[in-house]
Computed example of a mutant assay.
Amino acid sequence: MAGPLADALAVGGARCAEVTFRTPDAERVLKAMAAHGGLVVGAGTVLTSEQVERAVAAGARFVVSPGFDEDIVEKCRELEVPVVPGIATATELMRALKAGITTVKLFPAESLGGLRTLRALAAPFPGMRFVPTGGIDASRLAAYLADPAVLAVGGSWMATSAHLERGDYKDIRRLTVEAVEAVEAVERSMT
C-alpha cells in the first residue's frame, strides 16, 4: 500500500506527504514512503518525543503535531528535524513564538472558524506562518492558499481511508493532480 500510495501522490505532482502516527503501521508506511524518493515525507499526529525519535528513525524529514508541546519541539531541535506544532488559540501561538517557532499548524482549522479565525490570529503576529488542517477539502483549498499568512494547507481528501481500502490509487492520483493545479493557479494569481 505505501509504495503505490507514494507513486500516486508523486505522479500526481505532490512534492510532500505527511504520514500520521495514528495506526500501528505508521512507521512501516513512513519508512516505505520515505524510501520512495519522489516525495519529502514527514510524520504527523506526533504526540510524544519518543514518537519523534521513531519517526525520524523511519525517515521523517519533518514532524507535525496537533498541539504545542515543548518536549516535542526540543526533541525535533535535538534531532535537527523541522517541527510544525499545532495551535488553536492565541495563548498557544504566543508559546510557540516564545519557543522560536515561526510556522504553526492551525488545528482543527474549519471547526475553529476557518479563515476568519486564521486571520484573527495572524493579525497580531505578522511574522507567523500557518499550515491549516482539519476539515479542509478541495473546495476550500484556494481560499486558504490565497491568504498571505498561509504557508501550506494539509488535507486528507486526496487519499482517504476509503481510497486506501479500495486500492483506488487512480483516484488518489487524479485528486492530487487537481490539488496541485489549484495550488499552481493560486501561485499564478499572486505574481
Rank of each mutant, 00 (worst) to 15 (best):
A17V: 03
L93K: 00
L9H: 07
G86W: 02
A120V: 11
M94I: 09
V131L: 15
T20D: 13
V46T: 14
V104A: 10
G134D: 06
A88L: 10
V83E: 08
A120E: 14
A60S: 15
V46F: 06
I136N: 09
C76E: 08
T117S: 00
A26I: 04
K98Q: 14
V83R: 00
L47R: 14
T133C: 12
A60I: 06
G59F: 03
L121E: 04
Y169E: 01
V180S: 14
I172L: 06
M33P: 04
L30G: 01
V52R: 09
L97F: 04
A120Y: 03
L118N: 07
K170A: 15
T48K: 04
T91I: 04
V41C: 09
I101W: 04
A35W: 05
L151G: 02
A43W: 08
V180L: 15
S156Q: 04
L9V: 05
V186L: 06
E184Q: 15
G67S: 14
E165L: 11
R61I: 04
A14L: 09
P82D: 12
E18A: 09
T23N: 13
C16W: 14
G67M: 05
A2H: 07
V186K: 03
L79P: 10
E184Y: 02
E50T: 13
G67Q: 10
V63A: 08
T103W: 00
A2Y: 04
G37R: 01
V186Q: 05
R173Y: 06
V52W: 09
P126N: 02
E78K: 08
P82K: 04
E50H: 13
A14K: 07
I101G: 01
M1Q: 13
V11I: 11
S49H: 09
S65P: 11
H163P: 11
M33I: 00
A185E: 13
P66Q: 08
R129E: 11
F107Q: 07
I101T: 01
L118E: 12
E181V: 07
E53V: 14
K170C: 02
T45Y: 09
V73Q: 08
A88T: 08
T103S: 02
